[in-house]
Design a binder for these strands. Structure first.
Lengths: 375, 375
DNA sequence: TTGCTCAACACAAACGTTTCCGTAACTTTT
DNA sequence: AAAAGTTACGGAAACGTTTGTGTTGAGCAA
């Protein structure tokens, strides 16, 4: 939209529209939006000149430009993005599709993404699906109708069919996946190395002496669940610890079920001495149940989470967990996406960016000398 | 937009565009968006008929309508909201302006709001300002340029000037405030009774025997801070407890400063035996510092927070706090807002909806018989 | 003077819809 | 059978911009 050296009109607007002096303009402020036509009429020039002045086109005399910009400010003119989008076939809007907004993860990603988008003059249309497939599909339709210039998506835990996302590919609208990606689509992705992170988390449990390590896994349909599970399995194998099916429970991330699973696990004749949870909410809920059972953490059972969510530092004991660079994920995905827009689709490359994680060791796995709660 | 009995076109789209049989249509799928013109040409009818069929206008023969809808599905047609907005002067978009996305509060509000909006066929443009005034102003400009049909806003902690919001009033775009409202603007608001909630929270401390109750207050520029402070003061007065300036510390909600204040308070020659924090993050951070100092909660000092944020239930001891109906706030505000759209501005009433709160009593104020961490 | 370039602007088409108005072909009423 | 009404559709204007092309007059070299 901007090809010239003059800056676009983004001036601050005064509260009351008025002209300088002798020639007050009477608009019905309530319902008449100021358009370039109003400015043109007022200044006795053509719409095109006004448009060029506002967008910074060079071929407009500086005094004309000045008069236009001043009047625009006075009238509190705001560009109508609808018509601009219509004619330029660009909406300057990026869609972000996330499965939930409850944990701090996705909101934080959105913050990072929005920051990058704003720098480039784009705004974002956020929609969350409550981890519901039908809602996710409906949300992507909205994105299409609103002609987003690209979408960033993390799929719901129910999503097995990707037709609603492939439409974007066919229409030449760039997609970038993050976190929960779709393996069968060859588009850019921003992830962390879930396998590696899980491997090291479990290895940490092994190295601290645990032998029977349980895993509350995520739904198998999500790639991140499978990767974390594989990291778990390989870490055990590496250290010659048998992988027992009894100790691996995939579930649908519905927290209310955690209680059942934990009770089941701790009721086994040979209960686990450690638990690797697929994410922090699961780990935290597990800790609650375990405390309820009167068991000690980490003495009776050590816990490792995944995500370093809000709260994992102040729960007691502190939760050992995998830290992911949340905001960075959002920024990276958005940067990748913006790089695809306006670029020939033939040049798109399905890169996968893998961001670094870090195992944060806290009291849920290693007894720590914390300040006592007694003096 | 919809006045007739037939449903609008929102059909599910197949992945590959194709016509039934003998007459395949060759469109450059990549860059040509399907328009009603394409459908009209293919069927040898006029754009107006196609438009009417898609919007559900009654005066189109059912077989014609059927053919149009079928072709639209096959071609994967999606309405271009830009042109619709342009002609109807409605964007079907609601702007939501929030100060932050870190605590769970605002994301939750957005979820509630989005749910209501979706029901009415609106989508939302969310923007968070990082509690920065300039960003908030920039964000509202974006909302204007995008011709939102209304905005829901909770102001930043820095906002003292409301010109950027008054513009909406002048342009006849409805505003609804929630949580952090602007007192000087007569528009609908959705709040909780901060005064009353704070009063009861503090009274709870008094009734449990505390005499020296400190208050880590929010910035005075925010009405919610002042109201909570007043509730605190009046509860003390009611019970003949002197209000001591030493024990009231207003701060800018920058959590890194909490440590200083707590150390200061606990270092007083006559330290407080209770703390009322302006919000949960403040309370939780205070608890961390207090534990670090080797003090016991609630024996040495009782803590009350505000908000019932994520984590306040599993921190130890559990945080006594004021629960607010978060999702309900979002839903109520959105419902109020949607009610104003398309209604004559003369009929707008600046109602203030006050939602109920509830004091949740946990271990941070009352020693509770919790299951021990030892067996 | 003539011809040319160039700055500065005007004119008009275009983007994809909606919607008012018009009209032909039927259908019903008289 | 003529008049009136109805059904189903086409034509065209309009929304607020951007942008390619046309036009005007000034400045300058020949």
């Amino acid at each position: 939209m901007q090809h010239w050296e003059y800056s676009q009109y983004y001036g601050n607007a005064p509260i009351y529209a008025r002209t300088g002096g002798k020639n007050p303009i009477a608009y019905d402020v309530k319902n008449h939006q100021i358009t370039i036509k109003d400015i043109a009429r007022e200044l006795n020039i053509s719409k095109s000149t006004v448009s060029r002045a506002l967008t910074g086109h060079p071929s407009v005399k500086s005094e004309t430009r000045k008069a236009i910009l001043e009047l625009a400010e006075q009238l509190d003119y705001q560009r109508n993005m609808m018509s601009i989008s219509l004619i330029t076939n660009k909406s300057y809007t990026i869609g972000i599709v996330v499965p939930e907004f409850i944990t701090s993860f996705f909101p934080q990603v959105v913050v990072g993404a929005q920051e990058e988008a704003a720098k480039a003059g784009y705004n974002v249309l956020v929609s969350q699906s409550n981890d519901d497939y039908a809602t996710e599909v409906a949300n992507t339709k909205v994105m299409l109708a609103n002609r987003v210039d690209g979408i960033m998506v993390s799929i719901s835990k129910e999503t097995r069919n990707f037709d609603h996302l492939k439409i974007f590919q066919r229409k030449g609208i760039p997609i970038v996946f993050f976190n929960r990606v779709c393996d069968e689509m060859a588009v850019p992705k921003v992830v962390i190395d879930d396998y590696d992170a899980a491997y090291h988390a479990v290895e940490h449990l092994v190295l601290s002496g645990r032998k029977r390590i349980a895993h509350l896994a995520g739904p198998e349909v999500l790639a991140i669940s499978r990767k974390r599970l594989n990291g778990y399995i390989d870490a055990l194998k590496k250290h010659q610890i048998p992988v027992s099916d009894d100790l691996v429970i995939p579930y649908d991330l519905n927290l209310s079920k955690v209680k059942i699973y934990i009770k089941h696990l701790m009721g086994l004749e040979n209960p686990p001495d450690a638990l690797f949870a697929v994410n922090d909410p699961t780990a935290i809920e597990s800790m609650r149940v375990i405390k309820e059972l009167g068991l000690r953490i980490p003495e009776d059972i050590a816990i490792v989470g995944f995500g370093n969510n809000y709260g994992s530092d102040f729960i007691e004991p502190g939760l050992t967990t995998v830290n992911q660079p949340v905001k960075e994920i959002g920024k990276t995905a958005m940067t990748l996406l913006l790089g695809l827009i306006d670029k020939d689709t033939a040049q798109w490359r399905a890169v996968t960016k893998t961001l670094d994680t870090e195992l944060i060791i806290r009291g849920s796995t290693i007894k720590q000398e914390l300040p006592q709660s007694k003096r």
